[in-house]
Design a protein around this nucleic acid. Structure first.
Lengths: 342, 342
DNA sequence: CCCGCGCACTAAAGCGCTTGAGCGACCAGA
DNA sequence: TCTGGTCGCTCAAGCGCTTTAGTGCGCGGG
């Protein structure tokens, strides 16, 4: 910067003003400075900028899942892609960290905050009794929680929320299956304690109750193909096996179909299958899976945009992304016999 | 830090010495300072540290693939998990960015360098005629290229390389298939221009030549399930279809099996299938896929460790990770008829 | 003719940390 | 007693940028 000042024949302050679009220099000087800067390939040192109070030009994202579970899940990379698209516009960096559990995640937030490493964070996988919003509020770290449920108790202010209507989506799935004649439905759910898992389970119960169905329930898992398959086997081997299975992710759905076949259950003749989360996977197995589809990349974009707004001292917001659409493929069909039984 | 100094009754410099294990303070003072710091929950501001020449305590990773291709690939998240395990020991941050192509990737490196944002980078997906090593060398940014091939022309010094013996792995695959009687083998390869893709293709040609096989070839793709399926269909519909298919990733292998079945080819009775890269996917389809397995998380750990060594002014190194093992499952079998034909 | 004002720009302090120079106290050796 | 050398610590500069408080100048109005 000293260089630029010298070559442009002005003071460093003038350079700073010129390059930051601040008043205090004439247009002609501004242009000259800009040209010199460009020619020198100058970029502000983030360290220096941060030190003089500008913030670190970085946002953080930590995902608390064991490496194994992260496995086949396409969700995070898609989300991150979307986030980056938006961050790139402002040349913000994304500090990424994967940790084992929420406690470790909180520790990371504290450290990042103490080190002034990030200006804000994106939190994913909100939980019931989640300690993170309170912590972030205490630290005063701008944050948007994605995939959350709008907090009815209006959690700490200053947090934005980007959410998906899991309840509505679950209702549409149940509606679809019910219309096909299914009365015994098992929901192979995701991780217990995640807000959206709980919400889906709650909605399923409510839907079942309102339709007077008794053979409907949720079984939480760890999202892995192994558990997906195991639970599938267990429920299908029961006395009155379900006629429809709803899986909380694509991986389990695929594993479940395989498990069902190996037990002699044809899909969808003997049992219908719905995958929550559409991906290439769903079109790689036979039969192609009926799935709930949403635009994860766009989800990331939205979240990032809300965070940007927060960093600009905008108001905290609660924004809803479009309802996942149910893509009907080959894995769902009328219940065998076709008779609509109560 | 001023706080700590005051409370411990010493100067700021003494605090700095004490907390950085530098000589110049007595052990007793050092302890006192440490205690105060801990009690205050102090963490050095990375910005200030970086500004006074210490480096940013951050390493960068940029992957140049369109968001779509990033999709189902479990490779990157696994790699990143491994990387993080090692970085976490030193509280180094990981700045992550996904971009469209290598040109954009280079731009990111330049920017990061100019902004003093990272101390070093991990580069993935090395290519033939890769501009990145030269650029990083020019910038003087420590880097380790992972998944590379040790450069026979000894590229720029200062770059470490962590590599996998793709040639050996390909040889083992061909050996396995040959022993089963397969003579017509098609390799559905990955992205053309990637170093490891080229190496696999070259090795396949060499193996074919040395065994006098003529019906052996590679077909590059974009790694997507769509192209995997399309290529599979094309080669199987030819006059003399191959009896074995080798896919450069798990996603294409799964898609390929589906495509083959839909064409009436049974696996492995009519055509054997090998997947390069083992994952849950390979055990989620029927038949279970024979696959090349390697420990991607360990791969990431190794890469990160080499980068750490580089940051400690260690020497550049070329380290090889274990040869992928061929896990024989159900998707490979003797060629139909069993006769060993030339 | 001078005052006061606005404009374009400069000077300097400060962000939180590291670091080389400096300084007094203490001790061993002559 | 004095010298020279450590040891334990303090001082102050400096990293690259922002920002506040000036400074000098030209111009229009009284």
């Amino acid at each position: 910067m000293k260089d630029i000042a010298r070559r442009a024949g002005v003071s460093e302050s003038a350079v700073s003003f010129a390059l930051n679009d601040r008043p205090g220099v004439s247009d002609i000087t501004r242009d000259r400075v800009r040209r010199v800067a460009e020619q020198l390939g100058w970029r502000p040192s983030t360290a220096a900028r941060a030190l003089s109070g500008e913030g670190s030009a970085t946002v953080g994202l930590v995902v608390a899942r064991p490496a194994a579970t992260l496995g086949v899940d396409s969700f995070f990379l898609q989300l991150i892609s979307g986030v980056q698209e938006v961050l790139a516009e402002r040349h913000l960096g994304l500090l990424f960290q994967v940790v084992e559990d929420v406690a470790a995640e909180c520790a990371v937030y504290r450290r990042w905050w103490a080190e002034h490493r990030v200006d804000g964070v994106l939190v994913v996988d909100p939980r019931t009794d989640d300690p993170r919003p309170a912590l972030l509020d205490e630290l005063g770290l701008p944050a948007v929680v994605t995939g959350g449920v709008p907090d009815p108790d209006a959690g700490p202010p200053g947090l934005s929320t980007v959410w998906v209507d899991d309840a509505g989506a679950m209702a549409s799935v149940v509606g679809h299956l019910y219309a096909l004649g299914h009365r015994r439905i098992v929901h192979i759910a995701g991780l217990e304690g995640l807000a959206h898992t709980e919400r889906r389970m709650r909605t399923l119960r409510a839907e079942a109750a309102s339709r007077g169905l008794s053979g409907v329930r949720s079984v939480p898992t760890d999202y892995s193909d192994a558990e997906g398959a195991a639970v599938t086997r267990r429920v299908l081997e029961a006395a009155e096996p379900p006629t429809a299975l709803v899986y909380d992710n694509d991986v389990m759905a695929v594993a479940g179909v395989a498990a069902a076949s190996s037990l002699g259950f044809a899909v969808p003749a003997d049992v219908s299958v719905v995958a929550w989360e559409d991906s290439a996977l769903c079109r790689m197995v036979h039969p192609w899976l009926t799935a709930l589809s949403r635009d994860t990349v766009a989800f990331g974009r939205t979240a990032a945009r809300e965070l940007l707004a927060l960093l600009d001292d905008g108001p905290a917001a609660t924004v809803q992304v479009p309802l996942p659409r149910l893509i009907e493929r080959e894995s769902t069909g009328p219940v065998r016999g076709g008779r609509e039984q109560p």
